[in-house]
Every structure is written in C-alpha cells, then in structure tokens.
Amino acid sequence: MEKEKLQSFCMTLSGTTHDYQVDWQADRYHVGGKMFAMIGGDSEGKPIITLKCEPKRAEELRETYKGIIPGYYMNKTHWNSIYFDSNLSTDLIENLIQHSYNLIFEKLTKKVQKEIRME
C-alpha cells in the first residue's frame, strides 16, 4: 500500500478537502467538514490509515485481517486503522475508503450533500 496512491484516491471523491494535523503528524481527509480518513502513524510510527466503518463490518474486518485494528486514537466501535504493511489489496482498501466516505456523506445535511454533488 502506497501513501501517495491512497491520498490520490481520497482526493478523487467529490467534495474532499485535505489538511495536515501537525500535532498528530497526520494527513486528514474531509467531506462537508467531517473527517472520513486519516493517514499517519501508530505510537511506534508505523504507517496506518484510519477509516470510519459500520460497527458490525468493522468487527468482521478485524477478525478477518491481521493488519486491521480498532481505530488508533479514535472511537474503537466506529473506526478501524489499517497498517500499510498488511498486504491487503488496493481494491479492498479503496472499497473501505469509499465506505468511510459514504458513511460521513450520508450524515451531512441534504443541502450540503446537494452542494457537493453540484461541484
């Protein structure tokens, strides 16, 4: 998994904005002002991407894939972190990014959703 590919994929999603959180040393991706992805490191500096996930699916993913853990520094029920060295397919990770984006997008007001779709 390459950081640049993940960043590029995140930026292809409608209405996505990016910032860098200096305190966390993490790149953050937002839609409608709400974060859906964060690329940074764990306590040992190992690269991870953290994504929102439907709770039941989040648990299933953690049980299925060794490289997926409860969201680092996030609500463990609703967020997963994925280690870059976990050998997961690009398709799976892009699917999980899209899932995270969709969960956030669906919670935005209808007005904001419409504005994003118009971009």
Results as ranks from 00 to 15, higher is better:
Y72R: 06
C10M: 01
Y20E: 05
E63N: 15
E2D: 12
K66W: 02
Q25G: 05
N102L: 09
T64M: 03
L6D: 06
V31K: 07
I97P: 03
Q21D: 14
T50P: 03
H30Y: 13
T77R: 15
N87D: 15
K66M: 12
W79D: 13
E119F: 08
T17K: 09
L88I: 08
S43W: 03
N75G: 07
S14C: 11
Q7C: 09
T109M: 01
L13A: 03
C10Q: 09
I68P: 06
F36D: 11
S14T: 15
I39L: 09
M35D: 01
L92K: 14
E4A: 11
Y72E: 10
S8L: 13
K34L: 12
F84P: 07
K107A: 13
T17Y: 00
R57H: 07
L92W: 04
K110P: 01
D23E: 14
M35A: 05
T77Q: 09
T50Y: 04
I97A: 04
H99Y: 05
E94F: 13
S14D: 15
E94H: 11
T109H: 00
K76L: 05
N75T: 05
L108T: 03
C53M: 15
A26L: 03
Y101M: 10
K56C: 01
C53Q: 15
K34V: 14
Y83Q: 03
A37R: 10
K114T: 11
E63C: 10
I93H: 00
H30M: 13
H18Q: 15
K5D: 11
F36I: 10
K34F: 12
N95H: 09
I39A: 00
V31L: 10
S43G: 08
K76Y: 08
A37V: 15
K3F: 01
K107V: 09
M74H: 09
S43K: 13
G40I: 04
S81K: 07
D85A: 07
R62M: 12
N80T: 12
N102D: 13
K110H: 06
S100D: 11
I93E: 02
L88R: 12
Y73I: 06
C53L: 10
Q21G: 00
E115A: 06
T64Y: 02
Q98L: 14
N80K: 11
K56H: 10
D27Y: 03
V22A: 02
G45I: 12
V31F: 08
H18W: 03
I49R: 00
E44F: 07
K3D: 08
R57G: 02
C53W: 07
P55M: 02
S89E: 10
K46E: 12
G71F: 13
Y29L: 08
M38P: 06
I116S: 00
I82V: 15
L92N: 09
K107L: 05
H78N: 14
I69V: 15
Y101D: 11
M11I: 14
L103G: 12
Q113L: 00
A58T: 09
G45N: 07
K34H: 14
S81H: 08
R28I: 15
T64V: 01
M35S: 01
R57E: 14
G40V: 01
K5F: 01
G67I: 11
T12N: 11
Q98N: 10
S81Y: 12
S89W: 05
D91W: 00
S89A: 04
L108Y: 04
K114G: 01
W79V: 13
D42Q: 09
H78A: 12
